[in-house]
Amino acid sequence: MTAEPVDTVLEYSEWDAFGLPTLANRAATATLAHLGLAPEQFEIVLMGCDDARIAALNTSFRDKTTATNVLSWPSEERGADAPGEAPVLPVPNDGDDPTELGDIAIAYETCMREAEEASIAPTDHVTHLVVHAVLHLLGYDHIDDKDAALMEALETEILGKLGVADPYGA
């Protein structure tokens, strides 16, 4: 059996019935494969939490005191050299030891509220957020307009392959 790239830790019980581990592995696998990376050679830890936990993390790491939908912590800086360029992708370790890409935290209440407000399926929204977070772990960003255009185009392509509508469409 091929190893899955995401090790999911569920800190909030609402994620249990949602199927977050399966969804996260599907989204991460699609993202890595789309970029030509072998998913089984990489490892990501994803924590499914609640708004209180992610607000505390957001305060600690970003000095923002509110809950957010998803946070990511790359294991190393992988940003591009110039705006609009793709970052240098990680090289997998030799042997059976997967390369750690980093950690992700995702908040249940915020994700469900955003999905409801946007009238989209919660599974589609969470899939988008996992793809988005995995791209962050790989060095993609959206602070600069050129970087945002590149990242959003990749998200749309990956989500399309997963049967999820363009989240940036009209």
Rank of each mutant, 00 (worst) to 15 (best):
T66F: 03
D94E: 14
G48L: 06
E43F: 13
T22A: 14
A52T: 15
G84L: 11
P87C: 02
L71G: 03
L71K: 03
T99C: 03
D81K: 12
S60N: 04
S72G: 14
V91P: 02
L57P: 00
K64A: 04
G48Y: 15
T31R: 06
S13K: 07
L32H: 09
T65I: 04
V88T: 13
L35P: 11
R53P: 00
A30C: 02
E14I: 00
P90V: 05
P92L: 04
C49N: 01
L71C: 04
G19I: 06
M47F: 15
P74D: 01
E40G: 04
N69M: 07
S72T: 05
A86E: 10
T29C: 02
Q41Y: 07
P98K: 08
L32F: 15
A27N: 11
A27D: 03
A38H: 09
T31P: 04
T59P: 00
E43C: 07
G84E: 01
G48D: 05
P39V: 11
V91D: 03
D96V: 12
V45L: 11
A67V: 04
E100Q: 06
H34M: 10
S13G: 09
G79S: 12
A24H: 11
L101G: 01
R26P: 00
D96C: 04
D16K: 09
C49K: 02
L101A: 01
G84T: 07
E40N: 08
T59L: 09
L57T: 03
S72Q: 06
S75E: 07
W73I: 05
T66P: 00
F42G: 00
S75A: 15
A67E: 06
V45P: 01
V88D: 14
